[in-house]
Design a protein around this nucleic acid. Structure first.
Length: 369
DNA sequence: TATCATGATTAAGA
DNA sequence: TCTTAATCATGATA
Protein backbone atom coordinates (compact mmCIF):
# COMPACT_ATOMS: atom_id res chain seq x y z
CA UNK A 1 0.00 0.00 0.00
CA UNK A 2 3.02 2.26 0.28
CA UNK A 3 3.52 2.06 -3.44
CA UNK A 4 1.96 5.40 -4.13
CA UNK A 5 4.49 7.62 -2.34
CA UNK A 6 7.39 5.49 -3.55
CA UNK A 7 6.30 5.85 -7.15
CA UNK A 8 5.82 9.52 -6.70
CA UNK A 9 9.32 9.96 -5.29
CA UNK A 10 10.98 8.09 -8.10
CA UNK A 11 9.01 10.16 -10.48
CA UNK A 12 10.12 13.48 -9.05
CA UNK A 13 13.65 12.23 -8.81
CA UNK A 14 13.83 11.50 -12.52
CA UNK A 15 12.21 14.71 -13.45
CA UNK A 16 9.54 15.21 -16.05
CA UNK A 17 11.55 16.85 -18.75
CA UNK A 18 13.08 14.52 -21.30
CA UNK A 19 11.65 11.50 -19.60
CA UNK A 20 11.80 8.63 -22.09
CA UNK A 21 8.23 7.62 -21.33
CA UNK A 22 6.85 11.12 -21.24
CA UNK A 23 4.02 11.68 -23.72
CA UNK A 24 4.60 14.03 -26.56
CA UNK A 25 2.33 16.76 -25.25
CA UNK A 26 4.30 16.91 -22.02
CA UNK A 27 7.67 17.08 -23.71
CA UNK A 28 6.77 20.05 -25.81
CA UNK A 29 8.42 23.28 -24.81
CA UNK A 30 10.36 21.90 -21.93
CA UNK A 31 12.82 24.75 -22.19
CA UNK A 32 10.25 27.62 -22.32
CA UNK A 33 8.32 29.49 -19.65
CA UNK A 34 5.20 27.46 -20.47
CA UNK A 35 7.25 24.38 -19.68
CA UNK A 36 8.26 25.88 -16.36
CA UNK A 37 4.63 26.52 -15.59
CA UNK A 38 3.72 22.92 -16.30
CA UNK A 39 6.56 21.74 -14.11
CA UNK A 40 5.18 23.91 -11.38
CA UNK A 41 1.70 22.39 -11.91
CA UNK A 42 3.02 18.85 -11.68
CA UNK A 43 5.01 19.78 -8.61
CA UNK A 44 1.80 21.07 -7.03
CA UNK A 45 -0.07 17.87 -7.82
CA UNK A 46 2.68 15.75 -6.38
CA UNK A 47 2.80 17.87 -3.27
CA UNK A 48 -0.95 17.44 -2.86
CA UNK A 49 -0.65 13.70 -3.20
CA UNK A 50 2.20 13.59 -0.72
CA UNK A 51 0.30 15.49 1.95
CA UNK A 52 -3.10 13.88 1.37
CA UNK A 53 -2.68 11.34 4.17
CA UNK A 54 -2.04 14.07 6.74
CA UNK A 55 -5.41 15.65 6.18
CA UNK A 56 -8.86 15.10 7.60
CA UNK A 57 -11.29 12.99 5.61
CA UNK A 58 -13.37 15.91 4.32
CA UNK A 59 -10.33 17.90 3.45
CA UNK A 60 -8.82 14.90 1.72
CA UNK A 61 -12.01 14.30 -0.25
CA UNK A 62 -12.04 17.91 -1.40
CA UNK A 63 -8.41 17.75 -2.40
CA UNK A 64 -8.95 14.45 -4.13
CA UNK A 65 -11.72 16.00 -6.14
CA UNK A 66 -9.54 18.95 -7.02
CA UNK A 67 -6.79 16.56 -8.01
CA UNK A 68 -9.08 14.56 -10.26
CA UNK A 69 -10.24 17.70 -11.98
CA UNK A 70 -6.77 19.10 -12.46
CA UNK A 71 -5.88 19.76 -16.08
CA UNK A 72 -2.54 17.98 -15.78
CA UNK A 73 -3.95 14.88 -14.19
CA UNK A 74 -4.32 12.78 -17.40
CA UNK A 75 -0.74 13.48 -18.37
CA UNK A 76 0.61 12.54 -14.94
CA UNK A 77 -1.55 9.45 -14.92
CA UNK A 78 -0.10 8.33 -18.26
CA UNK A 79 3.44 8.76 -17.02
CA UNK A 80 2.68 6.77 -13.91
CA UNK A 81 1.11 4.09 -16.07
CA UNK A 82 4.29 3.72 -18.06
CA UNK A 83 6.52 3.63 -14.98
CA UNK A 84 4.19 1.12 -13.40
CA UNK A 85 4.26 -1.07 -16.48
CA UNK A 86 8.05 -1.22 -16.29
CA UNK A 87 7.98 -2.00 -12.55
CA UNK A 88 5.46 -4.80 -13.08
CA UNK A 89 7.60 -6.25 -15.84
CA UNK A 90 10.61 -6.33 -13.53
CA UNK A 91 8.79 -8.20 -10.76
CA UNK A 92 6.81 -10.48 -13.03
CA UNK A 93 9.39 -13.23 -12.72
CA UNK A 94 8.83 -13.43 -8.97
CA UNK A 95 5.13 -14.05 -9.33
CA UNK A 96 5.22 -17.53 -10.75
CA UNK A 97 2.84 -20.01 -9.19
CA UNK A 98 4.25 -21.97 -6.28
CA UNK A 99 3.88 -25.77 -6.15
CA UNK A 100 1.36 -27.08 -3.60
CA UNK A 101 2.74 -27.29 -0.09
CA UNK A 102 3.52 -31.00 0.70
CA UNK A 103 2.69 -30.52 4.37
CA UNK A 104 -0.70 -29.09 3.48
CA UNK A 105 -1.28 -32.01 1.13
CA UNK A 106 -0.44 -34.46 3.91
CA UNK A 107 -2.85 -32.74 6.28
CA UNK A 108 -5.57 -32.70 3.63
CA UNK A 109 -5.08 -36.39 2.89
CA UNK A 110 -5.18 -37.30 6.55
CA UNK A 111 -8.33 -35.30 7.23
CA UNK A 112 -9.93 -36.94 4.21
CA UNK A 113 -8.88 -40.42 5.34
CA UNK A 114 -10.21 -39.81 8.84
CA UNK A 115 -13.51 -38.59 7.44
CA UNK A 116 -13.09 -35.11 8.93
CA UNK A 117 -13.03 -33.34 5.58
CA UNK A 118 -14.88 -34.52 2.50
CA UNK A 119 -18.23 -36.28 2.56
CA UNK A 120 -19.34 -37.70 5.90
CA UNK A 121 -19.15 -41.49 5.96
CA UNK A 122 -22.24 -42.30 7.94
CA UNK A 123 -20.93 -40.52 10.99
CA UNK A 124 -17.81 -42.63 11.17
CA UNK A 125 -14.29 -42.65 9.83
CA UNK A 126 -12.22 -45.25 8.09
CA UNK A 127 -10.36 -45.76 11.36
CA UNK A 128 -13.58 -46.38 13.26
CA UNK A 129 -14.71 -48.81 10.60
CA UNK A 130 -11.39 -50.64 10.78
CA UNK A 131 -11.61 -50.74 14.55
CA UNK A 132 -15.11 -52.16 14.36
CA UNK A 133 -13.95 -54.80 11.89
CA UNK A 134 -10.97 -55.73 14.07
CA UNK A 135 -13.17 -56.22 17.11
CA UNK A 136 -15.31 -58.69 15.19
CA UNK A 137 -18.48 -57.35 16.73
CA UNK A 138 -17.38 -58.49 20.13
CA UNK A 139 -20.15 -57.01 22.19
CA UNK A 140 -22.20 -54.12 23.47
CA UNK A 141 -19.21 -52.75 25.34
CA UNK A 142 -17.29 -52.25 22.13
CA UNK A 143 -20.17 -50.87 20.12
CA UNK A 144 -20.74 -48.32 22.89
CA UNK A 145 -17.09 -47.35 22.68
CA UNK A 146 -17.33 -47.05 18.90
CA UNK A 147 -20.38 -44.85 19.06
CA UNK A 148 -18.58 -42.68 21.60
CA UNK A 149 -15.60 -42.50 19.25
CA UNK A 150 -17.84 -41.61 16.32
CA UNK A 151 -19.63 -38.94 18.36
CA UNK A 152 -16.36 -37.33 19.36
CA UNK A 153 -15.04 -37.50 15.80
CA UNK A 154 -18.26 -35.93 14.59
CA UNK A 155 -17.73 -33.10 17.09
CA UNK A 156 -14.23 -32.51 15.76
CA UNK A 157 -15.59 -32.55 12.21
CA UNK A 158 -18.26 -30.01 13.09
CA UNK A 159 -15.82 -27.64 14.80
CA UNK A 160 -13.42 -27.96 11.88
CA UNK A 161 -16.06 -27.09 9.30
CA UNK A 162 -17.42 -24.18 11.34
CA UNK A 163 -13.95 -22.70 11.73
CA UNK A 164 -13.13 -23.32 8.09
CA UNK A 165 -16.30 -21.56 7.02
CA UNK A 166 -15.43 -18.61 9.25
CA UNK A 167 -11.96 -18.34 7.74
CA UNK A 168 -13.32 -18.54 4.20
CA UNK A 169 -15.92 -15.89 4.94
CA UNK A 170 -13.33 -13.61 6.50
CA UNK A 171 -10.99 -14.20 3.57
CA UNK A 172 -13.71 -13.33 1.04
CA UNK A 173 -14.72 -10.23 2.96
CA UNK A 174 -11.18 -9.01 3.24
CA UNK A 175 -10.45 -9.75 -0.42
CA UNK A 176 -13.55 -7.83 -1.52
CA UNK A 177 -12.58 -4.95 0.72
CA UNK A 178 -9.05 -4.80 -0.69
CA UNK A 179 -10.31 -5.08 -4.26
CA UNK A 180 -12.72 -2.21 -3.71
CA UNK A 181 -9.90 -0.20 -2.21
CA UNK A 182 -7.66 -0.91 -5.18
CA UNK A 183 -10.44 -0.03 -7.63
CA UNK A 184 -10.94 3.22 -5.79
CA UNK A 185 -7.22 3.93 -5.85
CA UNK A 186 -7.00 3.03 -9.53
CA UNK A 187 -8.75 6.32 -10.24
CA UNK A 188 -5.70 8.23 -9.04
CA UNK A 189 -2.89 5.77 -9.67
CA UNK A 190 -2.38 3.04 -12.24
CA UNK A 191 -3.30 -0.42 -10.98
CA UNK A 192 -3.28 -3.25 -13.47
CA UNK A 193 -5.55 -6.32 -13.20
CA UNK A 194 -2.41 -8.40 -12.74
CA UNK A 195 -1.54 -6.36 -9.71
CA UNK A 196 -4.98 -6.87 -8.23
CA UNK A 197 -4.67 -10.59 -8.88
CA UNK A 198 -1.30 -10.60 -7.16
CA UNK A 199 -2.74 -8.84 -4.14
CA UNK A 200 -5.60 -11.35 -3.98
CA UNK A 201 -3.07 -14.18 -4.11
CA UNK A 202 -1.12 -12.66 -1.25
CA UNK A 203 -4.29 -12.44 0.85
CA UNK A 204 -5.20 -16.03 0.01
CA UNK A 205 -1.74 -17.23 0.97
CA UNK A 206 -2.01 -15.47 4.33
CA UNK A 207 -5.40 -17.03 5.03
CA UNK A 208 -4.16 -20.36 3.77
CA UNK A 209 -1.45 -20.39 6.44
CA UNK A 210 -4.14 -19.79 9.07
CA UNK A 211 -6.16 -22.65 7.58
CA UNK A 212 -3.11 -24.88 7.78
CA UNK A 213 -2.87 -24.22 11.51
CA UNK A 214 -6.52 -25.19 11.84
CA UNK A 215 -5.92 -28.38 9.85
CA UNK A 216 -2.86 -29.20 11.95
CA UNK A 217 -4.67 -28.81 15.25
CA UNK A 218 -7.59 -30.86 13.90
CA UNK A 219 -5.21 -33.65 12.93
CA UNK A 220 -3.68 -33.55 16.40
CA UNK A 221 -7.13 -33.79 17.97
CA UNK A 222 -7.97 -36.81 15.81
CA UNK A 223 -4.67 -38.46 16.74
CA UNK A 224 -5.33 -37.97 20.44
CA UNK A 225 -8.84 -39.35 20.02
CA UNK A 226 -7.55 -42.36 18.14
CA UNK A 227 -4.87 -43.15 20.67
CA UNK A 228 -7.38 -42.85 23.48
CA UNK A 229 -9.93 -45.16 21.90
CA UNK A 230 -7.91 -47.53 19.78
CA UNK A 231 -4.78 -48.11 21.83
CA UNK A 232 -5.19 -51.62 23.20
CA UNK A 233 -2.78 -50.93 26.02
CA UNK A 234 -5.04 -48.28 27.43
CA UNK A 235 -8.01 -50.61 27.08
CA UNK A 236 -6.64 -53.51 29.05
CA UNK A 237 -9.34 -55.80 30.29
CA UNK A 238 -8.59 -58.60 32.70
CA UNK A 239 -9.71 -62.07 31.75
CA UNK A 240 -12.70 -63.18 33.74
CA UNK A 241 -12.28 -65.76 36.50
CA UNK A 242 -13.51 -68.65 34.39
CA UNK A 243 -11.11 -67.85 31.56
CA UNK A 244 -8.21 -67.56 33.99
CA UNK A 245 -9.12 -70.94 35.47
CA UNK A 246 -9.16 -72.60 32.06
CA UNK A 247 -5.79 -71.11 31.16
CA UNK A 248 -4.31 -72.00 34.53
CA UNK A 249 -5.65 -75.54 34.23
CA UNK A 250 -3.91 -75.94 30.90
CA UNK A 251 -0.76 -74.32 32.19
CA UNK A 252 -0.39 -76.51 35.26
CA UNK A 253 -1.44 -79.67 33.49
CA UNK A 254 1.28 -78.96 30.90
CA UNK A 255 3.80 -77.65 33.37
CA UNK A 256 6.57 -79.70 31.81
CA UNK A 257 6.01 -77.98 28.51
CA UNK A 258 3.62 -75.04 28.82
CA UNK A 259 3.81 -74.05 25.16
CA UNK A 260 0.39 -74.51 23.58
CA UNK A 261 0.32 -75.07 19.83
CA UNK A 262 -1.58 -72.69 17.56
CA UNK A 263 -4.53 -75.09 17.55
CA UNK A 264 -4.43 -75.36 21.34
CA UNK A 265 -4.36 -71.58 21.62
CA UNK A 266 -7.36 -71.26 19.33
CA UNK A 267 -9.21 -73.88 21.29
CA UNK A 268 -8.33 -72.27 24.61
CA UNK A 269 -9.50 -68.91 23.29
CA UNK A 270 -12.81 -70.46 22.27
CA UNK A 271 -13.20 -72.25 25.58
CA UNK A 272 -12.44 -69.09 27.52
CA UNK A 273 -15.00 -67.21 25.43
CA UNK A 274 -12.79 -64.18 25.85
CA UNK A 275 -14.66 -60.98 25.28
CA UNK A 276 -12.39 -58.88 23.17
CA UNK A 277 -12.11 -55.40 24.52
CA UNK A 278 -8.84 -55.06 22.72
CA UNK A 279 -9.04 -54.06 19.12
CA UNK A 280 -5.57 -54.75 17.92
CA UNK A 281 -4.87 -58.25 19.17
CA UNK A 282 -6.33 -61.55 18.13
CA UNK A 283 -7.58 -64.14 20.60
CA UNK A 284 -4.63 -66.42 19.93
CA UNK A 285 -2.19 -63.58 20.60
CA UNK A 286 -3.96 -62.84 23.87
CA UNK A 287 -3.56 -66.47 24.87
CA UNK A 288 0.11 -66.31 23.83
CA UNK A 289 0.59 -63.20 25.92
CA UNK A 290 -1.06 -64.88 28.84
CA UNK A 291 1.20 -67.92 28.59
CA UNK A 292 4.26 -65.76 28.07
CA UNK A 293 3.53 -63.79 31.19
CA UNK A 294 2.55 -66.88 33.16
CA UNK A 295 5.74 -68.75 32.28
CA UNK A 296 8.01 -65.90 33.21
CA UNK A 297 6.17 -65.10 36.42
CA UNK A 298 5.95 -68.71 37.45
CA UNK A 299 9.63 -69.20 36.78
CA UNK A 300 10.53 -66.09 38.73
CA UNK A 301 8.55 -67.06 41.78
CA UNK A 302 7.74 -70.78 41.90
CA UNK A 303 7.19 -70.64 45.64
CA UNK A 304 4.41 -68.16 45.26
CA UNK A 305 2.66 -70.24 42.60
CA UNK A 306 3.17 -73.58 44.37
CA UNK A 307 -0.19 -73.66 46.07
CA UNK A 308 -1.93 -72.76 42.88
CA UNK A 309 0.03 -75.44 41.02
CA UNK A 310 -1.00 -78.07 43.60
CA UNK A 311 -4.63 -77.08 43.38
CA UNK A 312 -4.77 -77.33 39.58
CA UNK A 313 -2.75 -80.54 39.57
CA UNK A 314 -5.20 -82.10 42.03
CA UNK A 315 -8.11 -80.96 39.92
CA UNK A 316 -6.54 -82.41 36.80
CA UNK A 317 -6.01 -85.71 38.61
CA UNK A 318 -9.66 -85.81 39.67
CA UNK A 319 -10.78 -85.01 36.13
CA UNK A 320 -8.55 -87.73 34.73
CA UNK A 321 -9.90 -90.24 37.24
CA UNK A 322 -13.48 -89.30 36.36
CA UNK A 323 -12.72 -89.53 32.69
CA UNK A 324 -11.18 -93.00 32.99
CA UNK A 325 -14.09 -94.23 35.13
CA UNK A 326 -16.45 -92.98 32.41
CA UNK A 327 -14.26 -94.52 29.75
CA UNK A 328 -13.65 -91.25 27.96
CA UNK A 329 -10.98 -88.57 27.73
CA UNK A 330 -11.23 -85.22 29.46
CA UNK A 331 -12.29 -82.46 27.13
CA UNK A 332 -9.02 -80.58 27.12
CA UNK A 333 -7.42 -78.62 24.27
CA UNK A 334 -4.77 -81.33 24.21
CA UNK A 335 -3.80 -84.34 26.24
CA UNK A 336 -2.92 -83.15 29.72
CA UNK A 337 0.64 -83.94 30.64
CA UNK A 338 1.71 -84.95 34.07
CA UNK A 339 3.08 -82.04 36.06
CA UNK A 340 5.72 -84.43 37.31
CA UNK A 341 7.58 -84.70 34.00
CA UNK A 342 10.70 -83.19 35.41
CA UNK A 343 12.85 -84.09 32.45
CA UNK A 344 11.60 -81.03 30.60
CA UNK A 345 14.28 -78.45 29.80
CA UNK A 346 11.80 -75.66 30.56
CA UNK A 347 11.09 -76.98 34.05
CA UNK A 348 14.77 -77.59 34.75
CA UNK A 349 15.61 -74.05 33.77
CA UNK A 350 12.72 -72.88 35.90
CA UNK A 351 13.97 -74.84 38.84
CA UNK A 352 17.45 -73.42 38.35
CA UNK A 353 16.00 -70.03 39.12
CA UNK A 354 14.79 -70.91 42.63
CA UNK A 355 16.79 -71.47 45.83
CA UNK A 356 17.93 -75.11 46.34
CA UNK A 357 15.63 -75.82 49.32
CA UNK A 358 12.57 -74.57 47.53
CA UNK A 359 13.73 -76.40 44.45
CA UNK A 360 13.71 -79.76 46.23
CA UNK A 361 10.30 -79.30 47.81
CA UNK A 362 8.87 -78.04 44.54
CA UNK A 363 10.21 -81.01 42.63
CA UNK A 364 8.90 -83.42 45.27
CA UNK A 365 5.48 -81.90 45.12
CA UNK A 366 5.48 -81.97 41.37
CA UNK A 367 6.53 -85.62 41.47
CA UNK A 368 3.46 -86.43 43.56
CA UNK A 369 1.27 -85.96 40.47
C1' DT B 1 -4.39 -42.83 47.15
C1' DA B 2 -0.92 -46.34 47.30
C1' DT B 3 0.00 -50.82 46.11
C1' DC B 4 -0.50 -55.02 43.84
C1' DA B 5 -1.98 -57.85 39.85
C1' DT B 6 -1.93 -58.50 35.22
C1' DG B 7 -2.36 -57.78 30.10
C1' DA B 8 0.46 -55.65 26.45
C1' DT B 9 4.69 -54.12 24.34
C1' DT B 10 9.48 -54.24 23.14
C1' DA B 11 14.37 -55.51 22.48
C1' DA B 12 17.48 -59.17 22.35
C1' DG B 13 18.67 -63.74 21.38
C1' DA B 14 18.20 -68.52 19.70
C1' DT C 1 9.48 -66.54 14.11
C1' DC C 2 9.06 -67.51 18.76
C1' DT C 3 10.49 -66.96 23.56
C1' DT C 4 12.42 -64.54 27.31
C1' DA C 5 13.00 -60.80 30.31
C1' DA C 6 12.15 -56.25 31.36
C1' DT C 7 9.07 -52.74 31.39
C1' DC C 8 4.91 -50.06 30.78
C1' DA C 9 0.20 -49.01 31.69
C1' DT C 10 -4.09 -49.88 33.56
C1' DG C 11 -7.56 -52.20 36.54
C1' DA C 12 -8.66 -53.79 41.15
C1' DT C 13 -8.49 -53.49 45.89
C1' DA C 14 -7.38 -52.30 50.60
Amino acid sequence: MDEQPRLMHSHTGVGMAGHPGLPQHMQEGTGGTDGDGRKQDIGDILQQIMTITDQSLDEAQARKHALNCHRMKPALFNVLCEIKEKTVLSIRGAQEEEPPDPQLMRLDNMLLAEGVSGPEKGGGSAAAAAAAAASGGAGADNSAEHSDYRAKLSQIRQIYHTELEKYEQACNEFTTHVMNLLREQSRTRPISPKEIERMVNIIHRKFSSIQMQLKQSTCEAVMILRSRFLDARRKRRNFNKQATEILNEYFYSHLSNPYPSEEAKEELAKKCAITVAQMKTTLAVMVSNWFGNKRIRYKKNIGKFQEEANMYAARTAVNAANASSHGSQANSPSTPNSAGETGSPWLCSAIRHVPPLLCITSTKRLLQF
